[in-house]
């Protein structure tokens, strides 16, 4: 699949009004995250204790938090953490799941059965529990969160990749390649995996939305990014104590999470329509 072909559906998805709004928001958040240091005059960790709990004003558009730090600044930097952690974790998950699922689906047999059993087990387990166990093993922080989210969604992608491979492994071009003496690895990585990519990538995008929520939940338990590094979850975690005094500290990051996840879902739906793979992309 070449770049232009890959990007065409992404652009098509923007044509519907929902897709356009969703895509616009995502673009805004991503740009905000990347450009954070140039967009705001404040540092995310610079405290100004006497200036704590300011309501929104001309200097601080969303007000300040319990340390007098600018909330908007922290939201922008928080987007950096939340988005990158979720995306990287899902990236790990997709890569590992794709390989595991493809190998299991392609070779079948005992390996397939073993993978299926393990995958079914973790799949039926709530992601938050899988994630909590992993954080307990790896320890809190960004690494632990990455591992936790990565493993929590592994089952989903393994399952999807396996199903996709099973569906196409008997197709004629695969048989043709095999009869020409292509190795298993060559068939897997050249023919099979590339052909499963689009539904898996759409599923990955939707899962990134769920991962943002999971990251926020771990952050809420104080297990995610550690202070003073902001992430949306960590911001809400410290905001809990200020719930009734300064609801903004918890309101804005929560709204960002919700809006971003909604946008990902809407854009994902539009993308599914553009790719016409609806029936295959949803795993649950």
């Amino acid at each position: 699949m070449n770049m232009a072909a890959a990007l065409a559906p992404a652009a098509t998805a923007l044509r519907s009004p929902k897709g356009a709004i969703a895509g616009g928001w995502l673009l805004l958040v991503i740009l905000g995250a990347i450009l954070a240091p140039w967009l705001t005059p404040y540092g995310y960790d610079v405290q100004n204790l006497p200036g704590a709990f300011q309501p929104p004003n001309a200097q601080h558009w969303l007000g300040t938090d319990e340390f007098g730090r600018d909330l908007l600044t922290r939201l922008l930097y928080g987007a950096r953490t939340s988005l990158s952690v979720s995306a990287v974790a899902i990236g790990i998950s997709v890569t590992a799941g794709l390989i595991l699922g493809a190998v299991a689906g392609y070779f079948g047999g005992r390996l397939d059965r073993a993978v299926t059993v393990v995958v079914d087990l973790t799949w039926s387990f709530p992601e938050i529990l899988v994630a909590l166990i992993l954080v307990a093993i790896v320890g809190p922080g960004v690494t632990g969160t990455l591992a936790a989210i990565g493993v929590a969604y592994l089952a989903q992608f393994t399952r999807l990749a396996r199903a996709q491979i099973m569906a196409i492994r008997a197709e004629t071009y695969v048989e043709a390649a095999r009869s020409l003496g292509a190795s298993d690895a060559f068939i897997l990585f050249r023919h099979l995996i590339p052909n499963t990519l689009s539904p898996v990538l759409v599923a990955a995008m939707l899962a990134t939305g769920d991962a943002i929520i999971l990251e926020a939940t771990l952050g809420f338990f104080g297990l995610g990014a550690q202070p003073p590094i902001p992430s949306w979850g960590a911001m809400m975690s410290s905001g809990t104590a200020q719930l009734f005094r300064a609801p903004g500290i918890i309101l804005f990051p929560g709204l960002c999470v919700a809006a971003t996840v909604v946008a990902i879902n809407l854009y994902g739906d539009a993308l599914v329509r553009a790719l016409d793979i609806r029936s295959r992309a949803r795993t649950h």
Partner: peptide, 8 residues
């Protein structure tokens, strides 16, 4: 409704 973190 489904995109809001439960704790939030």
């Amino acid at each position: 409704g489904s995109t809001m973190p439960g704790f939030w």
